[in-house]
Design a protein around this nucleic acid. Structure first.
Length: 554
RNA sequence: UGGGUCGUCGCCAAGCGGUAAGGCACGGGGUUUUGAUCUCCGCAUACCAAGGUUCGAAUCCUUGCGACCCAGCCA
């Protein structure tokens, strides 16, 4: 599926599927699957695959399964399975069937027995090291294992005993008998079953042998009657093995594997192993840390499913290794939030301003629009009083060229309120500006002053009618665009990726913000009420992304 | 002198023999009580290179060059 506003462009997989339907291949049916291993949280790279697989199914009136590739219990867990389902649903997709490779273990075992009977698989007693040595190298053919000629009867017996738990881990493996001289190393008698006495999150202790990916994946696809098995480029070399297994066995179908380039996003990483390391070693505060490129992290930062799906459509789909600039993702979330987030005012680094000609005890409740371009989104009341707070950055004693905000003796518009003039700057002993004394022009509420132009507009809150909040600003997690190229990716972690501002003040209306609700704090960016740590008593907003800043500073 | 894959604008990406779409980024103009949004304009005589086929080539052929992936009992 694609969002309605993103034009759908042609890509090679769309073309293949369209052609297959035209030729009535698979009776015109389209069935895909998203097959994560439950060994970590889903990240933005998975989103590309999710959008592709579910998208092709939706576009073609087909089906898409969520299938857990759970054949390596050592690294997998229920927590990850649950998180993955949550994230896929959050993105807005529904699977046709929830599947697990482990559901096919019995069937897979039976197929392996068939392979043995056909003389196409054998039990090998070589150690892992020996198998590696026998495999040859990129330029030299491998050697055949002495066990390659084991009789069918003996193989059958040994394989049954592997399953029965008669051997220790590593004593034996079941190998496909293909070709030790094959130029494609994946075809040099790959292992298809190994012994692992590990408790499996779903099958418990029922098995002590587990099938390998290459053997499991193609058969799982075939058993689910998948038509197009979409995966990333690194599996290209595995396709001959995928097809070999399905050709030898009499399976319900023979899906077509098609490979595409995985997403690489600048200034971040999408390796589950490395993301896991960031979590384990506490470089971030969990898988859902807003700095993480995980779906859980992006969600907590305030990204929307719509923006992420839009992003996945915009970046295209090819077989070219490429790096996407952060700007594309930022554009997508800004586009969505600009249209849909309510506006509000928050002062991140307050500077006290006393409006000397404003009555001491007066408080006006000004009416501000929730969205300048969408009046149907309503308006709200914002209290205005004698003492207000503005952003420290919005005042400059020595303004740089083209500065449009407040200066000593200068005027500025308070957003939705009056024009004020700064008459006096008050400093502490260290010379820091701690207060501004200003006067307001009563005639400028809702209209421009006469005879002069005020070019600047700044946001504000009334000191006594605002609320304290913590605001977390997130910066890129890494200091270089391609952290993966680094010898040690941790060495290029950005030490300042999290900036916590604890003295912020937000307008009254934000007290009613709901969990995960997103806002535009005018002039500063898009923010989201933190879903984990915020409460009625403690307002915490996460910055999703800044506003575009077209101001060229000198 | 192993195998597989890929080379079109700073970053993505259409193009499928008829004379280089689009998006992001960037530069400039206009509107604006957000330096936002919106809007207008600009942005590859050129498709890794060199040959060849053709009336015509980014598209076909040849030869180079460059990049990525593969030697887990991981996926």
């Amino acid at each position: 599926m694609s969002t309605q506003d993103t034009p759908v462009s042609s890509n090679f997989i769309r073309q293949i599927i369209a052609e297959d339907r035209h030729n009535n291949k698979h009776n015109g049916r389209v069935a895909t699957r998203f097959p994560p291993e439950p060994n970590g949280y889903l990240h933005i790279g998975h989103a590309k695959s999710i959008c592709l697989n579910f998208g092709m199914a939706i576009e073609n009136n087909g089906s898409c399964n969520l299938r857990f590739d759970d054949t390596n219990p050592e690294k997998e867990s229920i927590e990850y399975m649950e998180a993955i389902q949550r994230d896929v649903q959050w993105l807005g997709f529904s699977w046709d069937n929830l599947c697990h490779a482990s559901d096919y273990f019995e069937q897979l075992y039976a197929y392996a027995v068939q392979l043995i009977e056909q003389g196409l698989a054998y039990v090998d007693s070589l150690s892992a090291d020996e198998i590696r040595a026998y495999r040859g190298s990129l330029t030299e053919a491998g050697k055949e294992s002495p066990d390659r000629s084991r009789s069918v009867a003996e193989n059958l017996d040994l394989f049954a005993r592997m399953r029965a738990g008669e051997f220790n881990d590593g004593d034996y493996v079941l190998r496909a008998k293909i070709d030790m001289a094959a130029p494609n190393i994946n075809m040099r008698d790959p292992a298809i079953y190994r012994i692992r006495r590990v408790h499996h999150q779903r099958t418990g202790n029922a098995w002590c042998i587990y099938p390998m990916y290459d053997y499991t994946h193609c058969l799982s696809d075939a058993l689910e009657n998948i038509t197009h098995s979409l995966c990333t480029l690194e599996f290209e070399d595995h396709r001959p093995l995928y097809d070999w297994v399905l050709t030898q066995l009499n399976t319900p179908s023979h899906p077509q594997q098609i490979e595409f380039a995985r997403l690489q996003l600048e200034y971040t990483i999408v390796s589950k192993r490395k993301l896991n390391q960031l979590v384990i070693e506490n470089h971030v505060h969990g898988w859902d840390d807003p700095r993480m490129p995980t779906l859980a992290g992006l969600r907590r930062a305030g990204f929307t499913p719509k923006a992420i799906k839009d992003f996945c459509e915009r970046i295209g789909l090819t077989k070219q290794n490429s790096w996407i600039e952060m700007g594309v993702l930022e554009y997508c979330i800004r586009e969505d939030l600009n249209e849909n987030a309510l506006r509000a005012m928050a002062v991140l680094q307050p500077l006290r301003v006393v409006i000397t000609n404003y009555p001491e005890t007066q408080c006006e409740r000004l009416c501000l629009s929730n969205h300048p371009q969408r009046p149907e989104l309503g308006h709200r009341e914002v209290p205005f009083a004698r003492v207000i707070l503005i952003e420290q950055d919005d005042f400059a004693e020595l303004p740089p060229p083209k500065y449009k905000r407040l200066t000593l003796g200068g005027e500025v518009r308070l957003r939705g309120a009056y024009v004020i003039r700064c008459d006096e700057v008050i400093k502490n002993e260290q010379g820091q500006v701690i207060e501004l004394r200003c006067t307001f022009d009563e005639a400028t509420l809702g209209k421009n002053p006469e005879g002069r132009k005020v070019k600047g507009v700044i946001h504000w809150v009334a000191q006594d009618y605002s609320y304290p909040a913590e605001i977390r600003l997130y910066h890129r997690l890494f200091t270089v665009p391609h952290p993966d190229n680094e010898e040690n990716f941790l060495s290029v972690l950005n030490p300042n990726s999290l900036e916590v501002l604890s003295d912020c003040r937000v307008e009254e209306s934000l007290v009613a913000a709901s969990s995960e609700q997103r806002f535009q704090f005018e002039r500063t960016g898009y923010f989201c009420l933190d879903a984990v740590e915020a409460s009625q008593e403690r307002l915490i907003f996460n910055r999703t992304v800044t506003l575009r800043d077209g101001w060229v500073k000198e």
